[in-house]
Nucleic acid binder design. Structure first.
Lengths: 342, 342
DNA sequence: CCTGAGGCTCGAATCGATTCGCCGACGGCG
DNA sequence: CGCCGTCGGCGAATCGATTCGAGCCTCAGG
């Protein structure tokens, strides 16, 4: 700490009180006369002392006042994904109002040793962002330290989790598309397993994705009786959505579904590029419900997740766990928002 | 900390060595035979001890291993701005490789009391993101604690800073536009002062913006002999860029300049919306050099800042300051990237 | 005037680890 | 054969605060 060398002991001496009394004057806990408090605060101001050292307080209290957030495997990618960002936003904001700090932890790559921060960072609990869940070693490293964790978008099998009912949502979308008469539906999914490269997926070979989010969303579509005529897996990036769109259009679909709004935006761009009218020639739908002000006239049909709320819930769960309580897993509803693209 | 109750003392006892020796076995500093180290590590594994408590270590060492990052006044806005995000990315990544953690600190609103995290968070130094600079109270709160700070995009007058040579960049752009024969240039600037509402600016009334970034960029344009025919100030959001574009087109400009790429994207959308051809009817240019994959065929003419690099530099400066060194302010060059929009 | 009850303040233990100086033992060299 | 240099391990002080039980002082009631 670059703080001044003045300690609470100095302040106490200057104020003519004991160390314990000085501590009380700052923490406010315990009985203390306002006269004494004033005296201590005055002495503190005099000496340029600006409050107790957080590290020392943490040590004594046994709590650090910090919650770790493990980003997806690729930090850069997480930062480019508006969904992750909004989660983060919800988390940081919620924690801040509770006086808790948010420590960003880049997850280690797939199989590397967990970053030293995971093992050496001071925190009371950790939130694992969607992308980070795949890295089992990360979870293990945290668990080994005895840190409680909350997963976003996880299965909830390993401790608390917060997730959307994506299966039910996708089912609603599937039904919506069927009502509109779409039978040839091509989908651009999220990766089927961690580290997967963008490209076509033969649904015959691997029927169910290993990645839980991808699996649940695909299950939802199928539950609505929609069996994709073509599948392309890709990361949640507009660029990859465009590439996916170009490839998927070869199957002459009447509807394109992206497993994220960014992907869907890419699909939309690819469709326009191919000279197709949306939604007359081909319908497009996404998932997430993020703002895409640059889509122009169109508003994307999508499944809206209450992203910031989920972040907030995750943060609250983490706080509960940090305080020694137990948090149960939570699923939130998604809502079908019909735009102009279906 | 939710860690197991086992302490280094327990491990030392179990291994039959002294506490100090056990510490050495983990830290690796100081002379210790590998036989002893093995013995200690074995005992630790046996007891389920996973390394020294970070908080206790921080207290003793006097360094917390954490650098704070103060976000712009509106956390939500910062998270929506790709530029902030990329700064953050550069910072987090750089710090992580050095074994340092990044603590996110939402800046207090304009005049509120500084958030308790600013005063109670454990950190060795702080980085102030561009938007946070305006809040003097924030800086004061940190300074009062004796924390060294690095500003991104600041004036460099208050301690170390990292910024782009935006004036020189804008001057290049101004010259580029003049070479292309543009004389009627309308600009959508960033806010002229903190907390400003979007809307027109009468350059006659207030000739120079209070916000340093806005001022420097405008100075650059003027240095190239470009005096805007109309000015609109707005936040770095596509929506506000669109609104700005609609308003600015009334002045029949031959070129539109946005002070950020998001704004410029909005200007571009507004121009297309008005049925104008770009760049034939109106040219559009931005500032930042971020990826905008959704712009379609067009690539924006813009001034590319090495954003992630700037984040990296800021992080390195913060580390230097945290280690007790001195960091000098740094200015990096921006590069004019001519796209298809001018 | 004496006693009981509060309300403040104080001492001291404690959180868990780092680190510096010191000491014992062992090996090499004169 | 003895002395000195070195390597490895140990004790103890220390980082800066929190917190609990004990003690004192004062005020009120009998």
């Amino acid at each position: 700490m670059g703080r001044s060398a003045t300690t609470l002991t100095d302040v106490a001496r200057a104020a003519g009180v004991s160390l314990s009394t000085a501590s009380l004057a700052f923490s406010g806990a315990g009985p203390i006369s306002s006269a004494t408090r004033e005296k201590v605060l005055a002495a503190a101001a005099e000496l340029g002392y600006h409050g107790p050292d957080p590290v020392a307080a943490s040590l004594r209290r046994g709590r650090s006042g910090v919650i770790g957030v493990v980003m997806g495997s690729a930090v850069r990618r997480s930062f480019r994904d508006p969904v992750s960002i909004q989660f983060l936003d919800g988390i940081v904001t919620t924690l801040a109002t509770q006086g808790y700090g948010t420590l960003m932890l880049p997850a280690s790559g797939s199989d590397e040793a967990p970053g030293s921060l995971l093992t050496h960072g001071a925190m009371d609990a950790a939130v694992l962002m969607a992308g980070a869940v795949t890295s089992t070693r990360t979870i293990e490293a945290l668990r080994a330290r005895g840190l409680p964790t909350v997963q976003i978008g996880g299965t909830g099998r390993q401790g608390a989790s917060v997730r959307a009912r994506d299966k039910e949502g996708m089912q609603m979308l599937g039904e919506h598309l069927r009502e509109r008469g779409h039978t040839r539906v091509a989908v651009a999914t999220l990766p089927w397993q961690s580290g997967a490269q963008p490209g076509p997926v033969d649904a015959g070979t691997t029927r169910r994705p290993a990645a839980p989010i991808t699996a649940r969303r695909l299950d939802g579509l199928r539950a609505a009786g929609v069996e994709p005529v073509a599948i392309w897996q890709c990361a949640s990036l507009v660029e990859e959505g465009i590439a996916a769109g170009r490839a998927l259009l070869a199957s002459r679909p009447t509807a394109l579904v992206g497993f994220s709004d960014l992907i869907a935006a890419g699909l939309l761009i690819a469709a326009r590029e191919a000279g197709l009218r949306v939604p007359e020639d081909v319908a497009v739908a996404g998932f997430d419900g993020i703002d895409l002000p640059w889509l122009g006239e169109d508003t994307l049909t999508t499944l809206v997740q209450p992203i910031a709320d989920m972040g907030r819930h995750a943060a609250e769960a983490a706080l509960t766990l940090a305080a020694g309580g137990t948090a149960k897993s939570l699923s939130v509803d998604v809502e079908l928002r019909v735009g102009t693209t279906t």
